[in-house]
Each structure stands twice: as C-alpha cells, then as structure tokens.
Design a protein around this nucleic acid. Sequence first.
DNA 1: GTTTCTGCAAAGGTTTTGCAACAAA
DNA 2: TTTGTTGCAAAACCTTTGCAGAAAC
Lengths: 157, 157
Amino acid sequence: MTSSLSQQIQDRLEEFLVSKSLRRTRQRDVIVEAAFSTTDHFTADELWEKARKIDATASRATLYRTLGLLVESGLLKEIDLGRDQTYYDPNFVDHPHHNHLICTDCQKVVEFEDTHMSLLEDCITRRLGFRPETSSVRIEASCDEFRRMGDCQRRKK
Amino acid sequence: MTSSLSQQIQDRLEEFLVSKSLRRTRQRDVIVEAAFSTTDHFTADELWEKARKIDATASRATLYRTLGLLVESGLLKEIDLGRDQTYYDPNFVDHPHHNHLICTDCQKVVEFEDTHMSLLEDCITRRLGFRPETSSVRIEASCDEFRRMGDCQRRKK
DNA sequence: GTTTCTGCAAAGGTTTTGCAACAAA
DNA sequence: TTTGTTGCAAAACCTTTGCAGAAAC
C-alpha cells in the first residue's frame, strides 16, 4: 500500500482481506493505488491503463478479479452513467449517499448529496412496504452555460 | 399489428416508422407484440423467447435491430435493475415518470411514481446550474413480509 | 423498380475461467 | 509448507455487422 491512499481505505481493505483470508500482493496494491489515486470514475479498461503506468505487472484477469473484490468489500461501487460500459466509483467511502448528475452537453459527471432526497426515498420505500437498503439516482441534464459559451462550467471539475 | 396492442403504442410506432421511412414487417410486428403483450420488464434474450412463441421467424439480429428502433422511438426504455443484463421497460409510454424499487428478497420490481421526487430532482438540478432532461431512480429494499412468511407481498405482481 | 429488411455467419468487445507455475503467510 | 494468486490463453457472453437474397411499398 502506498502512502497516498487514505487511511480509511487502507484500513477497510486490510480488514476485508484479513476477514476473507486473502493476501496482499504487488498486483492488488498497484490496482488499488490506481483506483483511488483520484476521485475520477473509471471503466475496467481505464483502470487497467492507469495501473499499467504505475507498474505493468498486473494482467487483465487479475484486474477483473481485483475489481470484484473491491466491489464486494464496498470500497468501490459499480455505477450506471448511461453509457454502454460499467463504470466504477471510488468516492462512496467518503460520501456514501451521493448521486450523479450527468451533463448531456459535455458528459461531465457532477456528484451531489441531498438530505431531502434521502428522506423522501426512505418515505416512499416504507410506504410501499419495504425496508430501504440502497438507492441510486441518475439525473441527465443540459448546461445552459455550455450552450452559450461552448463550454461547461463543470468541465474542469 | 395485432389488436392486443394499445392504440397509443400503435400510433406512436406508425408515426415513427413513417417519419423515418421504415417499413412494417412481419418480424417487427411479432417483436413489438411480444414486447408489449405484458407490462413485464425483459432482457433481449427473454424477448426473443417470447417472440419465438408467437412466430419463430425473427432472428436474433433482427431482434436487436428492432430493439434499437423501439428505444430510439421512445416506446421502450433501457433500465438498470442492478443485475448484470440490460433490461427493457415497456411501461414508460403509459407512465413516463416512473421509477423502480427492487425487492432484495425476491427480486421483484415495483414501479412507483412520486411528484415530490420529481420536483425535488428538478430543484436540485437547477440549483447545480443545469436544465433537467431525464432521471432514473432505483431503490433496493427488503420486504419484511418476505422474511416473516418466506414470501413477498409483491411477488405475484 | 427501388429501397429497406432479413438471416446467416462471422466478428467485436468485454468479462470469466481452468490450469500450472508462483508467491504470500 | 500450505493456501491463495497470477498470467496465459481459451472460452463464454452479449451485441453488432457485412452481405446477398427477400420483402415492402
């Protein structure tokens, strides 16, 4: 594990590996470092490229196997950005309840949290006779600024 | 077109075909009939099986091509039920703003609409500087009844 | 007749898997 | 040592596509 990873991620990963009698390997360390080096969402293939730049020893097979472990441990979440590939989101450890707004002009993704939304989901779910577990909200929206200026305010996010 | 299809779907399909200079064929008719014969969600493969039972002339290639047309025309929507396949939802023509709750016990899908949720999404989106276009909400929740009785209230929905 | 559509079979892209060698604990 | 892990290459999936014959209009 490199020092650039937050303590929280290191701790949760360590706990998960121990609880499952799994081992720390060079390849897993590299993949985890690549996954959490930024807050950007990524596809499996993008993560592979990122990991290769750090250290080219991990194969695609290992990448997919490690992605599975990270999702299972709750460190990473699969998200649907409305594109044709599965994306992974490394930000749920820090912000467990966030949702996604996707700019239909420049495709940038804005994460947001909203207490009212969480409460409302909770009400709706209970009213239907269920106990809430998880939820995901995706909003697609256009940016006025993009149309006016040919660029989107959030583009450099 | 068979008489079991709602007039609204027939009309919208006809309009779409004409506007794009597309033709009505036996295969498309069968696939459309299968897709809208119930309000159930389906995968491409499930739809293929359904269509085959009506009339086995359509190939998988035609099925996928027709699915593309139906999505493009807005008659069908791709939805993410959190499973590993793409599902299609034939209910958006009648209920354009509905969302999905998925029972984590029996996997059944409950559709719901909520005005407050729509309003709230609108507020959040505008507050972030965007103009809302579409949104999708997926709630995963467990059913107390299922745990108590080994069955889920909504199971026969 | 002209244009669109179809089935077939092959190709594409992504993800998974069996296995023998390898590495962590 | 023991048990878990890896890379490789093949397989498994799902979806798309080129093409020549067939069907719609």
